[in-house]
């Protein structure tokens, strides 16, 4: 604890408290956890080290999450990236912020639209287990149904506004889209 404190300045702490959904104490706790992720004495955690977080390890989108939050976009995270991630996943973050990041996580090709290719990747990642996976035909059908439900302007892909529209409708989203520090 003492060591952690000495490495973050007061100004940093204040900034972090102002700019994330955490209190100073939680920031310090996050710092400790971040430090524990790697044995090496470096300020950056690689993608593999980030996946020491059990929630990211178990998550089918683990790699994608790291990439979205990484400031270098290759999955390597600094402490600020890590804090940002945990802040978005915290209980206090509003639904809109969570929705924004969820959209970016699901948007694999980064074209700011959830197209059929993105949906296919999401569905595959979600349903793939050791024993079974959905058939190509089923996936196609699923994508078609999802678009029929959510694609309001009928352009064949979901824009952020359309995605947010689904999220707004759900009370469960902010309950499930979270990782405790």
């Amino acid at each position: 604890m003492g060591a952690a404190k000495s490495q973050l300045t007061d100004q940093q702490l204040q900034d972090y408290q102002d700019l994330t959904y955490f209190t100073k104490k939680e920031v310090l706790y996050a710092y400790q956890k971040f430090e524990a992720l790697s044995t090496k004495n470096s300020s950056i955690r690689t993608l593999e080290e980030m996946k020491n977080i059990p929630e990211l390890k178990a998550n089918p989108f683990g790699d994608r999450i790291c990439k979205v939050f990484s400031s270098t976009q290759d999955g390597n995270c600094t402490f600020e990236d890590y804090l940002d991630m945990m802040s978005v996943f915290s209980d206090a973050a509003p639904k809109s912020v969570k929705a924004e990041h969820a959209f970016r996580i699901f948007d694999f090709d980064g074209d700011d639209m959830l197209g059929t290719a993105d949906l296919r990747q999401v569905i595959t990642a979600l349903t793939k287990t050791r024993e079974h996976s959905l058939t190509e035909e089923e996936i196609k059908q699923l994508i078609q149904y999802v678009l029929a439900e959510a694609d309001l302007d009928d352009d064949g892909s979901l824009s952020f506004a359309e995605f947010e529209h689904i999220i707004e409708k759900s009370s469960d989203f902010s309950k499930t889209f979270r990782i405790h520090l």
């Binding site: 059990p54 929630e55 390890k57 178990a58 998550n59 089918p60 989108f61 996943f89 969820a102 699901f106 949906l119 999401v122 569905i123 979600l126 699923l142 149904y145 999802v146 439900e149 959510a150 995605f163 689904i166 999220i167 409708k169 759900s170 469960d172 989203f173 499930t176 889209f177 979270r178 990782i179 405790h180």
Partner: peptide
Amino acid sequence: YNRYAKKIFYGWDWSISSK
């Protein structure tokens, strides 16, 4: 009534931490 979209976009519980 987003039955399919619901399952896909928030069927996953992000706090799951075991394989």
